[in-house]
Amino acid sequence: MTMELDREVSLTRELPEYGLRAGNIATLVDFVPHPSNGEEGCVLEIFNAIGESLTEIAVPISAIETLRSDEILAVRTLAKVS
């Protein structure tokens, strides 16, 4: 699986600390090494449905996957993080 920067990817797991769910879409911004030789990470930019940037987050690379042609997009309200 080749992942390219500035491409949309989907989350493979829930990230409740950010109000995000598996299947949400993000843009891959950068790859980052783990500080103690663990799993490589990546920086994602999260956008709302009308294209406004909400935040950037860092996650393990295993938390994302490339988009596939058999997937469709959906809209939901962003959960408030408390």
Rank of each mutant, 00 (worst) to 15 (best):
42 C>K: 00
81 V>C: 13
30 D>Q: 10
46 I>V: 13
3 M>K: 15
28 L>W: 01
35 P>Y: 05
15 L>D: 07
6 D>Q: 11
78 L>R: 11
23 G>T: 09
6 D>V: 08
11 L>I: 01
82 S>L: 08
15 L>Y: 01
16 P>R: 05
50 I>G: 13
52 E>S: 11
56 E>T: 11
53 S>K: 06
52 E>V: 12
60 P>H: 15
26 A>F: 13
62 S>R: 12
39 E>P: 00
45 E>D: 10
16 P>K: 04
15 L>W: 04
40 E>A: 13
71 E>I: 09
44 L>G: 01
39 E>R: 05
44 L>Q: 01
31 F>E: 02
25 I>Q: 05
55 T>H: 11
8 E>W: 03
73 L>K: 07
17 E>C: 13
3 M>Y: 13
5 L>P: 06
77 T>Y: 02
24 N>M: 14
10 S>V: 10
32 V>Y: 07
56 E>W: 04
54 L>R: 00
74 A>Y: 05
36 S>L: 13
44 L>F: 04
75 V>F: 06
25 I>T: 14
4 E>H: 11
49 A>Y: 07
64 I>R: 04
61 I>H: 00
14 E>M: 12
75 V>S: 08
57 I>P: 00
31 F>Y: 01
31 F>L: 05
7 R>T: 15
78 L>H: 15
50 I>T: 05
63 A>I: 02
55 T>V: 12
18 Y>F: 07
64 I>S: 00
74 A>N: 03
17 E>N: 07
48 N>K: 06
15 L>P: 07
23 G>H: 08
38 G>L: 08
46 I>D: 08
55 T>D: 14
58 A>K: 06
62 S>T: 08
63 A>M: 11
33 P>C: 13
44 L>R: 02
80 K>T: 02
50 I>A: 15
43 V>Y: 00
37 N>T: 08
14 E>D: 12
81 V>Y: 09
32 V>E: 15
53 S>H: 02
46 I>C: 12
10 S>M: 06
13 R>Y: 12
40 E>S: 07
70 D>P: 09
55 T>R: 07
65 E>N: 08
68 R>A: 15
51 G>M: 12
82 S>Y: 04
63 A>S: 10
42 C>H: 00
20 L>M: 14
3 M>T: 14
65 E>F: 00
49 A>I: 06
44 L>V: 07
9 V>M: 11
16 P>H: 02
12 T>K: 08
36 S>M: 10
76 R>N: 02
82 S>G: 03
31 F>P: 04
67 L>N: 08
25 I>M: 08
53 S>Q: 14
10 S>A: 15
22 A>N: 09
37 N>E: 05
14 E>S: 06
76 R>F: 00
21 R>F: 12
17 E>L: 09
1 M>W: 04
19 G>S: 06
27 T>I: 14
39 E>F: 15
52 E>A: 05
8 E>D: 08
44 L>H: 05
51 G>L: 08
25 I>K: 09
53 S>W: 06
68 R>C: 13
6 D>A: 14
70 D>R: 12
67 L>P: 03
11 L>H: 01
26 A>Q: 03
